[in-house]
Every structure is written in C-alpha cells, then in structure tokens.
Amino acid sequence: MIIAERKPLNEIMNMVQDAKRILVLGCRGCVTVCSAGGEREVEILASLIRLGKQKAGQEVSTIEATLVRQCDKEYIDSIDQWDGQYDAIVSMACGVGVNFIANLRPMVKVYPGVNTSSFGGSAEQGVWSEQCAGCGNCILHLTGGLCPVARCAKSLMNGPCGGSVDGRCEIHKEVPCIWQAIHDKLVRIDKADQLAAIAPIRDWSTAGHGGPRKTMRNDLTV
C-alpha cells in the first residue's frame, strides 16, 4: 500500500488560513489501512482544524467525508455534491488523490493533509516499512523477492557494500542489511549461484528519472 502520515498541524493551518469552510476529504484506500487518512483521521483532523481556528479567533465550518478512492475520476466526481459549500479541500489521500482533484477540478483549492512517503507494509501494529520503490523495472526474481532498490540505503545492484556489519546497514544501524538478507535467502532456496552474476549498469529511466510515467493497457482502453 501507499504509506502516508499526517502533515504537521502548523503546515495545515497555514494552508487553510484564508478558508472559512473546509472540506476534509479522506480516502478508504491505502491511507485508511495505514491510519493516515481514513474516516477516523478525517474526524480528528477536522476537529483539530476547528480548534486551531477557534484559537485564532477565526470562524470555520468543516465538512467531513471519505471517498472510496481519490485516484479514480468516478469517485472524484462525487465531491460535486458539496459544490458551493467549501472554500478549500484538505485531502487526506496520498499525493495521487490531491493531484486527481487538482486535475479534474481546476477551480478548486486543494491542499495535502498528509505526507506521502513510500510503498510499504505493516511491520507491526503502528509501524510501516518501505518495501518497494516503484522503480518500474522489477528484479525481485533475482534477489529472492527482497528489493535492494527500496531497502538498501544505497540502492546497490551488486551488494552488499563494504559497510555491512553483522547483517546491519552501515547507514542505519537499526535496519537489516538487505543484501545480507538476499544472500541468506538465496542460499536457503538453493539459488546462491545467482549471486555470482554481475548486475549490469541499471537504466533508471523507468524510475521516474525520465519524467512522469504512464501505464497503458491497450486491451482495456476504449
């Protein structure tokens, strides 16, 4: 899922300083699962915005709503039901949702309520860890299913580096060295010979370095 967390409140309060009517808009997708922008977080942020405005002696009213997703036009269309009832939207979806609203409703002021950080999973309750960098050229079949692009501090293709000590990363001591984990995994599944292959210089153009990426499925387009 896409991992996000609520922005610092002072940032959000600055964004909405001129707005008197605010639509706080959550998303039932990834940000609900990672407890950043679902129904519950919408309720909390709306309350905090009201309190912040009360402290500043400013009038405010809030509308709280949560869409099924904010990354599909069909769901974005449903915000039209609040037309004329808000001055600005604080979207608690990932950055995709904010972009979609901005793309599809050019006259609407939309602000991000969360910082979108990574693609990851739940490591334990309340903890999420990055697992995938969305680089567009997956090599997990060569690395025992463990991603060095996302999980190696240096995104090495031929690791480990010389700094790995006792299976820990030299950059972040609390993080396991993913190349050590890749080595151990490949040995366990009898694929250690894959480690002898030298990975070629990587083409990063699929990772966004060549500009915004677009995926098209001709069998689905109409």
Binding site: R40, E43, I44, S47, L48, R50, L51, Q54
Partner: peptide, 11 residues
C-alpha cells in the same frame, strides 16, 4: 476512547 472524543471535549 477515541482521540476525537477527547478533542470534542475541548471543542
């Protein structure tokens, strides 16, 4: 207890 319940008390 929900966070929102406690915030509402302040509101």
């Amino acid at each position: 207890l929900e966070v929102s319940t406690l915030l509402k008390a302040f509101e």
